[in-house]
Computed example of a mutant assay.
Amino acid sequence: MHAPRPFPARVAAALLAFSTTVGAVGACGGGPSNFPDRDAVTAAQAVWCDALAKVLGGGPKWEHLAACKAAYPTASPGYLRQMAKCFPRRLEAAGDDKTDRAQLISECNDEVIGSINEPEAAAQDLIEARCARMFRCENVPAAECKAGFTKLDGSQRVLLTTVYNGAGRYEIADCLDTASCTDNEIAGRDACYKPVTDKLLWFPY
């Protein structure tokens, strides 16, 4: 089974930039089978794969379709379904096989992030982990961290929480809980997000 291909580095950097914003403004186990959103993620991944198959060629006969549907990304169901609409449409509109995929994904992020309706309550463990780390490493009180988080706009909160599925959020939270404090805690927190952000979307190459 193919692992999800890395999310384009430039797009990952754009997403992680919001972590820096939270650092300045907010001061704030197990595998996929253990999470309640597993079936929804699998179904949304199939929608994403069918969309890729249609736009990249082959439709149901696309050579990468089975590998794509067998993959388990770190994106939430809502993000996958929204990107399945936006990315193929923008790629077809570009009409060029050499179109910068990272640029299209970045444009889609701008378009769809506000439409992701995953419940923020599902990400409370991740918010708690961020705030616990900020208290442990920077002596920022949890109440101050959480108050800062609520002041962010909805898109920023999504990019730090519900753009990821349950397994992805768990991986980030576990890193925030266990990774050592650093001299640059903004970079330290971002380092916990990066490997998960890299696996938001599956591509065959």
Rank of each mutant, 00 (worst) to 15 (best):
M1P: 11
A3I: 08
P8E: 01
A13K: 09
T20D: 13
G23C: 11
V25F: 09
A27G: 14
S33R: 12
S33E: 15
N34A: 15
F35P: 07
F35I: 05
P36W: 04
R38D: 11
R38C: 01
D39H: 08
A40R: 04
V41K: 09
T42L: 05
A44G: 03
W48M: 00
C49F: 05
D50M: 04
V55H: 06
G57M: 04
G59E: 07
P60K: 01
K61A: 15
A66T: 13
A66E: 15
A67Q: 15
A70M: 10
P73T: 05
T74S: 15
A75T: 04
A75N: 08
Y79I: 05
Y79N: 05
R81S: 12
F87V: 15
P88Y: 05
D96A: 11
D97W: 08
T99M: 13
D100E: 13
Q103L: 13
Q103N: 09
E107G: 03
E107S: 02
N109E: 13
V112T: 03
V112D: 02
V112L: 06
G114N: 04
G114F: 01
I116C: 03
E120G: 04
A121T: 12
A121H: 06
A122F: 08
L126M: 04
R130E: 08
C131A: 09
C131W: 03
A132E: 12
M134G: 07
N139K: 14
P141I: 09
A142R: 14
A143F: 07
E144F: 07
E144P: 01
G154P: 03
G154Q: 13
Q156F: 05
Q156I: 06
R157E: 00
V158T: 15
L160G: 06
L160P: 01
V163D: 00
Y164R: 12
G166M: 00
G166V: 08
A167Q: 12
I172G: 08
D174Q: 15
D174F: 11
L176M: 03
T178Q: 08
A179C: 09
S180G: 13
S180N: 13
G188Q: 00
K199F: 08
L201D: 04
